[in-house]
Every structure is written in structure tokens, then in C-alpha cells.
Design a binder for these strands. Structure first.
Length: 558
DNA sequence: CTTGGCGTCGTAC
DNA sequence: TGTACGACG
């Protein structure tokens, strides 16, 4: 649920950069003959030609939609090239897309605080860069402005949204422009430059939005695609939001947005303006209420986090219908695949970014064939994470068995049978900077994985050869640079380090014990009573009912 | 196997 | 802290 944050008083310059049909671009770079061709990426699935997870713009022209199956896409667009997501260990493997995303991030991080929002989206705080630029070069003196900047869409600039280059040039260089507009203009120049740099270094195009906060920047980046940028001026905010369907706003595409529509009759963001902050708080709680009130006005204090790397790693797979896993042995087989992928990624993160993960979590979905409503909740379980594929597997299997016992309850006790797992995933979280000295551990595990991966005798003794290879670092600051390392992996290395932050973030002792831990049982709270699932959880519908009087009396006011 | 599957991130208790 | 679940793409 969204949380209200006070708006920062100063006017920031925030950009949202969104890669255009990213997976398709990655495949087109890999296979250049696909460039310019109608292309879509499908997830491995022999059923009806697989599900589309990315559609190129040539194919979109023919009406191909993300919601289609491969077969449908072929019908609408017979010439379409359907590229399969790589498969490794019997499952879809997104590694190449993640690595491509890292390439992009490392370029975008050059000009300001950068937040990796997803595999193909990035937020940038360009406030400092824009202010510096404005101080050094008054815009009205600009002689040549890059074509990419002149192609910007400036919201509210022209009546028909038909901003030609000369109009944009005029807007960019207006002497008497609002100071905030001038900063936006600087932001647009910087972003255009960054987008060109991304194109030069990666061959990928992207679109961008430039605004005073994340919410508006995100909205803008999607308005003109592909390979274009959109600027949200202060003056345009009201007119932009007023007619906008509520579902178009980030965070309002789900149940909260639906509740707004069905319960309050709010169809556009403008409709929300009718409700007082107090009323929205009464209905949705203090945080969400304030957040909604601000959102309707284009206000968002959300900061751009300086974070270039993911906060967790996961590997999972679904087993729909008849493919459901019906024995512990089958589950173990797939857990092995998932744990090996996860372990490989953890190892790479350790070597490349000097980070260690602390928590291992197992998620699953399952049905009980006795229960008529087949899909009951399968509990997720976590434990401390121990490095090495074999240990991750061992712990995952234990987590699964603990969860399975809980899931089945007293229901008979067949070891196998009577149940089926339809989804299985393992993930690693609580990732922090590794202590210096972990490099030796890195090498230790590297050797282990390479040369005797199957041997799971965890002799905790390894030579603690003191190496001062790398100071620990955090990624909390702005600039970073990238180096290619080894196996096609992209490293993102921060320029600045903050030992203070690291030292408070983790204790050497804790990390060492995590890495070398020899206990073979994950720490489970097995005996703990299962809590009542419905406690403290009220749907929007329930909340609405609880406050029905307030709502209706409010509605009468209007 | 209803817009899938496979991730990620976030909040609440 | 672990766990559940929503949102997004």
C-alpha cells in the first residue's frame, strides 16, 4: 500500500527512463537480422505457442498484444518472429536481460543519483546536475541544441500536442521562463544526452519522462514511445491529471484503484480532487488517504534511492495443471534446479559486487486434492542462508518439508500423494556489503563449485588467508562506473564508498558465521501456532462498510 | 492453464 | 523477525 511522504520543499528534477520493449531489443541486438522486423519474445511454453512477454513496435502496429499467445500473434501478424526466452535447467532464464539492464544502469548512473526500479526502468535525480548546468550556462545563450532535445514533448506547450522543434527551442531558451521550467529544460538536455549515450554504448533505445517528482516522471516516460522523451511542466500538471483514468496512476492499477471507482465513483484523477484529505483518511487510513490526496494534485515526495543493484534474487517455476509436482522426490528434483540457479547468481553477486545475502526463503503454491477448493495457501518459510549450491538445496528441502507438514496439517499423513505443488520458488534477500576478507571465501566457494560441487561435506576449515583485496563498499552514492568481467557479467562498481554505513549494516562476525555455518537444520519455528489468517486483514470492501456512514454523509455534502 | 510466467519491490502485522 | 500479500511489467 502506498505511503504518504512529505513533499520535499525544493523543486527536484527527476527523470524516469524506460527501455522500449526491452527483451525484444536485447534479442534484436543478439540477432541483428531481427532489427526492423516484427518481433516478440515468448516464454517457453509449448502450449498455444507460448505467452508473449514483450512485443516490438513493428508487431504492435499489426495489433499484436502482450496478452496474446504465440499462436494468436501469428494469426494477426504471420511474419512475426517469435523468439524464445533462453531455457536453462529446465526453466526460463532471464540472465541475459538482467545483464543488459545492468549495462544500461551503469550508463545512466553517471549523471546523478540513480535507482534501478526494475530490470528495464530507472529513476534519476538530476537536481544537482540541472542546477549546476543552469548556473554555468544560461539557456538563452545556447547556440546549438541537440536534435534529441528538440524532439522532446513539452506538455502544455502547444494546444494540439504538436510540438515542433522551433517551438521547443523557444521554450527551452526563454529568458523569462519560470526557474523551475529552466531546471526542467536542463534536465531534458541531460536526459537526452544520457539516452544517446545508452544508444551508442548498448544499441538500445529508451524513452524518458522529466518532471519534478517520480510519479509524474513515470507517467511522462510512457506518454511518447518509443525513443522519445516527455517533459512535465508545472503548468501542465493540472490538465494532465484531471482527465486521466485513475488506473493509469502507478499503484492505482489494482484493488485500490478499483475500490476508488466502485466505492467512491472516482473514475479520473480529477474526480479525486473532490475528496478532502480527512475523508480519504477516514476511508483508507492515514497513510493511504494522504497519499491519495497528494497524488490527485501531482504531489509526491518519494525520493530517488541510490541503488544500482537488486535487493534480492529469486528463481522459480510454475507447474500448471497436470504438471503439478506430486511427490517430495519431484519437488527435490526441481528445487535442485532452482537452487543451482540461485546459488550461481549469489556467487556472481559476491564476486562481482562483494555482497552477501542473509536470508533464504522458499515459496510454493499447492493444492490438496481432498479440498474442493483446490488451491489452499501454502506457507512460505525462511532460514539463514548458507552459501554453496548443496547447502542452499539442503536448506530449501528442509524448508519445503516443514511447510508441507504445516500445509497438510493433520490431514492423513501420506508421504506422497493427495497434494500437488503448482509453483515453486527460492529467493535470497537481506543482501548487504560483504566484509573485507570475503574474497578468500569467494575463492574457496569458487573452487568448491567448480571442482567438487556434489561433495557436500562442509568442512568449515578453510585457510583464512588474509587478503586485503577489496575494501568493502556500498552503492549508496551517485556516480559509478562499469567494467566487463569474465563470463559476460556486468559489474557495477560505485565510485564512492561509505565504510560507516557498511559497518552499521553488518557485523563481520555475523557474516562469517553465516558463510561458514555448519548447522544443517534451518532455523524454523516449527512448533509455533499458526496464526489466524484473517486477523488484522480487512479488504477495501470491509473498510468501506465499516465507514459507510461517513462515506454516505460525505456524499450528501455534494 | 481466464492476462500467461518469472521476477522484483513494497507494506502490514 | 518471519510471513502474507499487493502491485507492477
Amino acid at each position: 500500500m502506498p505511503v504518504a511522504r512529505p513533499e520535499t520543499s525544493d523543486s527536484r528534477i527527476i527523470a524516469h527512463v524506460d527501455m522500449d520493449c526491452f527483451y525484444v531489443q536485447v534479442e534484436q541486438r543478439k540477432q541483428p537480422h531481427l532489427k526492423g522486423q516484427p518481433t516478440a519474445v515468448v516464454q517457453y511454453n509449448s502450449w498455444k505457442g507460448g505467452g508473449l512477454i514483450a512485443v516490438g513496435y513493428e508487431a504492435r502496429k499489426d495489433g499484436v498484444k502482450r496478452s496474446m499467445r504465440g499462436d494468436e500473434a501469428k494469426k494477426v501478424c504471420p511474419q512475426i518472429h517469435l523468439v524464445q526466452v533462453p531455457v536453462a535447467r529446465g526453466k526460463a532464464d532471464l540472465t541475459i536481460y538482467r545483464n543488459a539492464g545492468s549495462e544500461v544502469v551503469s550508463i545512466l548512473a553517471r549523471k546523478g543519483r540513480c535507482e534501478r526500479a526494475s530490470i528495464d526502468e530507472v529513476y534519476l535525480d538530476l537536481t544537482d546536475a540541472a542546477e549546476t548546468m543552469l548556473k554555468e550556462t544560461p539557456l538563452e545563450t545556447l547556440e546549438s541544441i541537440d536534435e534529441e532535445v528538440l524532439k522532446s514533448h513539452v506538455l502544455g506547450l502547444s494546444l494540439n500536442g504538436n510540438d515542433d522543434r522551433e517551438t521547443v527551442r523557444e521554450w527551452l531558451t526563454r529568458r523569462d521562463a519560470d526557474h523551475r521550467d529552466k531546471l526542467l529544460a536542463c534536465g531534458a538536455i541531460i536526459v537526452a544526452e544520457l539516452r544517446l549515450q545508452v544508444l551508442r554504448e548498448t544499441e538500445f533505445t529508451c524513452s524518458a519522462g522529466v518532471a519534478h517528482n517520480k510519479m509524474l516522471a513515470k507517467l511522462a516516460s510512457g506518454m511518447n514511445k518509443p525513443a522519445q522523451q516527455t517533459i512535465v511542466t508545472l503548468a501542465s500538471v493540472k490538465g494532465l491529471l484531471e482527465p486521466l483514468p485513475i488506473k493509469k496512476m502507478k499503484q492505482l492499477g489494482g484493488k485500490l484503484g478499483s475500490s476508488l471507482q466502485t466505492d467512491l465513483g472516482v473514475n479520473t484523477v480529477g474526480d479525486l480532487l473532490q475528496f478532502s484529505e480527512q475523508k480519504l483518511q477516514d476511508i483508507y487510513g492515514a497513510n493511504t488517504g494522504t497519499w491519495l490526496w497528494n497524488t490527485a494534485r501531482g504531489i509526491s515526495g518519494d525520493e530517488v534511492e541510490g541503488r544500482l543493484l537488486p535487493k534480492s534474487h529469486g528463481s522459480g517455476k510454475t507447474f500448471p495443471g497436470v504438471q503439478a509436482l506430486k511427490s517430495v522426490a519431484a519437488v527435490e528434483k526441481w528445487l535442485k534446479e532452482l537452487c543451482e540457479e540461485l546459488s550461481e547468481r549469489l556467487q556472481l553477486d559476491l564476486e562481482t559486487n562483494k555482497r552477501v545475502a542473509h536470508t533464504l526463503t522458499l515459496h510454493a503454491n499447492a493444492y490438496k486434492s481432498t479440498d474442493t477448493d483446490s488451491l489452499k495457501k501454502f506457507p512460505s518459510k525462511s532460514c539463514p542462508l548458507r552459501y554453496g549450491a548443496g547447502k542452499v538445496l539442503e536448506d530449501s528441502v528442509n524448508l519445503f518439508q516443514a511447510a508441507l507438514r504445516e500445509f497438510l496439517g493433520s490431514y492423513t499423513n501420506p508421504v506422497d500423494g493427495g497434494w500437488g505443488v503448482t509453483n515453486l520458488s527460492v529467493s535470497a534477500s537481506k543482501i548487504v556489503a560483504a566484509p573485507s576478507g570475503t574474497c578468500s571465501i569467494t575463492r574457496y566457494f569458487h573452487g568448491q563449485d567448480r571442482f567438487h560441487a556434489s561433495s557436500e561435506q562442509s568442512d568449515k576449515k578453510f585457510a583464512p588467508e588474509s587478503d586485503n583485496l577489496s575494501p568493502s563498499r556500498t552503492e549508496s552514492h551517485s556516480a559509478s562506473h562499469q567494467t566487463d568481467c569474465g563470463e559476460g557479467q556486468t559489474q557495477i562498481t560505485p565510485d564512492t564508498s561509505s565504510l560507516d554505513q557498511y559497518e552499521t549494516a553488518c557485523k563481520d562476525e555475523a557474516i562469517e558465521s553465516c558463510l561458514t555455518s555448519t548447522h544443517h537444520e534451518p532455523q524454523l519455528r516449527l512448533s509455533e501456532k499458526e496464526r489466524n489468517n484473517n486477523d488484522g486483514k480487512r479488504s477495501y470492501e470491509q473498510k468501506r462498510k465499516a465507514t459507510q456512514e461517513k462515506v454516505s454523509s460525505f456524499c450528501w455534502d455534494f
